[in-house]
Design a protein around this nucleic acid. Structure first.
Lengths: 212, 212
DNA sequence: GTCAGGTGTTACCGGCGGTAACATCGCCGG
DNA sequence: CCGGCGATGTTACCGCCGGTAACACCTGAC
């Protein structure tokens, strides 16, 4: 938080940032040190180990987006509008600075056996925000807690995967993507009509409509 | 596919399997070779490189679940029942063999710059199956292609993240989890009533409430 | 008998994350 | 003026990693 408190640290983070934007998140400590014009041990003095550096970098980059999403979740809007606002906030955040997105996405590198964590730490925070927002704002009856928590994770994962695909292939405008996801969340999958093709071949014993 | 065709290969995969279940997916080639009672170069002769080994292992484990999900997607059921059936198939698959789930989840280790891939290859296949199923079975109008594709990714990511959380914390029975996710997909978030708490504080132009 | 191909070895490479030990500077108190 | 002390920096090293080269052995086919 203190920008002038430890300026060298910020400087090192800037260098790390440049390297990671250039070489991807698998950049070596040597490379980062070289970019900063120094050698490895200094990095280790400042950040402990590689995870420490990455964590610091991640926090620096994601805190803005996280705050924006949190604010969007509490915006005084009609629910559908609020959902669209949150989706748009997230998508425009990862669109504006894809490097942020990569850090956001990449799970803790120091994996203590590979189990669990499908969501990176920053995304887990977002999931918690969604859980809290749903729990506070929507009347879900007796299953409240379970639903809010499951949905928080689920929605986060949905937006992660869909947003990832959108960023990679750019199949449509951001606005349209927001609509597509909000429509999914709004039960459009349930509401749409069946297609006549590939219909159920009626497990009944009597006459069944021959397909095609 | 040929089980008797290259039996040594299967044997090596079994050893790799044991080690990875014991030490996690970050197990070293040396460790795997030792478990198989041999040394590294043999592994490299059979699988090319580490990715090759992991890929072979992943395919062996995930093909069953993938086929089950594909079948569930084409089951002749009412749509909601079909969705529940797919969800249950996936959850019971990862429940029965968590190691499978870890492989399913873990992205390609040989990351060519960290970009993109929020979904591991096996999950991308599932996403494509969902896309195809939606596209074939649901009448979505003009936006058909875009919606089916975005939803395929989105639903996959949703189930990944929610399933991950469920496996880790076991907050409820599988059946209830299936209901929670199906309800989300069925627009229950849209249909529920607003809670009276935390209401919109009227963004009037005059006095703004000083935050406590 | 010899040649091919699978199985296996030892010994090595460059690079990684991480550390120990040592050299400087600048600043602050006596 | 000087001693110390904390930050800044260095070189040289460790063990381990993924991956490879070179060589040895056995077995069965022609």
């Amino acid at each position: 938080m203190p920008p002038a408190d430890e300026p060298r640290r910020e400087q090192l983070l800037n260098a790390a940032d440049r390297v990671i934007q250039r070489d991807g998140p698998s950049a070596s400590m040597n490379a980062i040190a070289a970019e900063a014009g120094i050698t490895k041990p200094i990095l280790y003095r400042h950040f402990g180990d590689r995870n420490g550096l990455i964590r610091a970098l991640t926090e620096r980059h994601t805190s803005g987006l996280l705050a924006a999403v949190r604010a969007a979740l509490n915006e005084p809007l009609e629910r559908r509008d609020r959902v669209e606002h949150v989706l748009d906030t997230y998508l425009s955040g990862i669109e504006a600075r894809p490097q942020v997105y990569r850090l956001l996405t990449h799970p803790e590198p120091g994996d203590p056996s590979g189990a669990g964590h499908a969501l990176a730490p920053a995304l887990r925070q977002i999931a918690e925000e969604i859980t809290r927002a749903v729990d506070n704002q929507v009347d879900l009856g007796a299953d409240r807690e379970l639903l809010a928590e499951a949905w928080g994770r689920g929605i986060t994962g949905m937006v992660l995967a869909a947003g990832d695909w959108w960023l990679e292939t750019r199949p449509c405008s951001r606005t349209r993507m927001v609509q597509a996801l909000a429509d999914l969340l709004w039960g459009r999958l349930a509401a749409a009509a069946d297609l006549p093709t590939a219909v159920l071949p009626a497990p009944a014993p009597a006459a069944d409509a021959p397909p095609a």
